[in-house]
Structure formats: C-alpha cells, structure tokens
C-alpha cells in the first residue's frame, strides 16, 4: 500500500496531479539515463583497451537512446496537455526532446545522485554501472506492466539493452574483485565511494509514489530485496564484502544534486545555451 503524504502534494491542484506526476516521473527516468550515458561517454577514446572502450561507448549510446525515448514522450505529454513548462529560448513553438535535455538547469534535473558521480577509475565506473543496471533491470521488468502503454513499450524495448549491461558489468565486477591485489583494492575503494548513493534508488519521491499509486510507475521500494540478492551474489563471487554502512545520500530525484552535475550540464548544454535554437 502506498502512502502519499499530504504535505508533499498540497501545492499541486488535484486535476493536474496525474499529468504533473507523469511528467516528473518520466523526466526522472530520462535524466538518469542521460547523465549516466554522458558519464560513460567520457570514456570514449580513453578506455583501458580498445574492446572495452567500444563496450562502454555502446552502453553510453544505449542509455542516451533510452533517455531520448523518455524525453520525446515527456515533450509529447507536455505539448498535448498544454502544460505551462518554463524553458528559456522556447517561445511560440512546441517543446522538443532537445529542449528538455539542454535547457533545464541543475535544480530541475531529477536524476539519481549515483549516476552523476565522477567516473573515477575503471573499477569505479564498472561498479556504478553494475549497481545501476541491477536496479534498472528490475525497474524495467515492472515498468513493462505500466498502465501507460508508452512507458511500458519503452521499458520492453530497453530491458534487452539493460540485460546486457547487467551481464557485462557483473562479469567485470567479478573479474576485478577476484583479480589481482590491486584490482581488488580498487574495487574496495569503489564500494566505499558509491555505496552511500544506493539507498536513493529505493527511496521514492512524491511523484514516484503518485505514479506508482496510479499504476503508471513502479513502486521502487519493492525492488530492494531482489537488488540486494543480486548484489550480494555478485559481490560474493567477486570476493568483495557487502557494505554494511548506511546508504543515506539522496536528493537527486527532487533536484538536490552534488556539485558534479553542474559541471556535466555546463559541458553538455554549452552549445544550445550559447547559440539558442541552433540545429545541425
């Protein structure tokens, strides 16, 4: 049973609730995929070996492709319902997927904190991908049953990609954790860096609660058990300890980000902000 606290929702007019929640919910999915895709793309040309450079770049492209699907749908919902959505440089025309990616500022981004963290070394990038893909797989599995046919369709298409991301990152976690002394040490360090951000995955924001109650979105609290099971099994095989420290960092879903997101957006959004509405 999902409880929605009144204080979180009292500012939103009742009749607008479903659309607002749907927009925020879809943006959360889009932003998370876009930012992790962008982070992974930073490896392009810098991967440890050619084959893995291509692998991580492929994953980056998959995630940015997923983000596009969610942004396109969000734009469609905004335009169709004539929702007042304030974006700079957008006047007298419909909102597009690009506007949503390039013209929203840090406080409006709803991605998970985990995905905006710097890449660190290869081990950190791998572990972040593993934590995320294990979560995203479970999320898409449920989202396929969404009452919103568009979200269900995107989930059904994307889960094939995520299945591979999870397989690839799991194998790398095992390879590095159960590898050399140095790779093991680096994975311990990666656990230390990223574990604190994993709690947010299963801590629903107000719009996620509404979306779940409407059976449009997934109740993320229900994913935690299966996620822990998968993570425990892989870490065990990798001879890495399951962290016991609390994972308390959160806020990304409602726009409270670490300082890193601003730098990502500065790089990613530069062109559209310097030359508004330019095309190529």
């Amino acid at each position: 049973m999902i409880e929605i606290s009144n204080s979180e929702l009292q500012d939103v007019p009742v009749q607008k609730l479903p659309v607002e929640a749907l927009i925020n919910y879809t943006l959360n999915l889009a932003d998370t995929s876009l930012i992790l895709g962008h982070r992974n793309s930073e490896w392009t040309g810098h991967g440890p070996v050619l084959e893995q450079d291509i692998a991580i770049s492929n994953i980056a492209l998959d995630l940015i492709g997923q983000a596009r699907n969610f942004y396109q749908y969000t734009a469609e919902v905004i335009n169709k319902n004539q929702v007042a959505f304030d974006l700079p440089y957008v006047t007298g025309r419909a909102i597009t997927e690009d506007d949503l990616a390039y013209l929203r500022d840090v406080l409006e981004f709803k991605n998970l904190l985990l995905v905006e963290q710097p890449n660190g070394d290869w081990g950190q990038t791998i572990l972040r991908q593993f934590f995320f893909s294990a979560y995203q797989y479970l999320l898409y599995e449920q989202l396929q049953k969404s009452k919103d046919s568009q979200l269900a369709a995107i989930a059904e298409k994307s889960i094939k990609e995520t299945t591979y991301h999870l397989r690839w990152s799991s194998e790398w976690v095992i390879r590095l954790g159960d590898g050399t002394e140095e790779s093991h040490q680096r994975m311990l360090n990666a656990l230390q860096e990223f574990w604190m951000f994993t709690g947010e995955l299963f801590k629903p924001s107000a719009y996620e609660q509404v979306a779940a109650a409407m059976q449009i979105g997934v109740d993320v609290t229900t994913l935690k058990g299966a996620w822990m099971e998968k993570v425990t099994a892989v870490l065990e095989e990798a001879k890495l300890p399951l962290p016991t420290t609390p994972a308390l960092q959160s806020g990304g879903k409602t726009g409270t980000h670490s300082e890193h997101l601003g730098f990502i957006l500065a790089e990613m959004q530069f062109l559209q902000r310097a030359y508004p509405n330019s095309n190529w």
Partner: peptide
C-alpha cells in the same frame, strides 16, 4: 580479431566490436 582474457569475454567483445 580482438583481445580478451577468456572465451566468454571474447564473445562479449565480439558482440560489442563486430555486431554494432
């Protein structure tokens, strides 16, 4: 051809490099 530590990784690398 490509480099990989074992057959499993070779198949995954082949998937990533040659079936894009």
């Amino acid at each position: 051809s490509l480099h990989a530590v074992d057959a499993e990784m070779a198949i995954e690398n082949a998937r990533d490099v040659y079936t894009r």
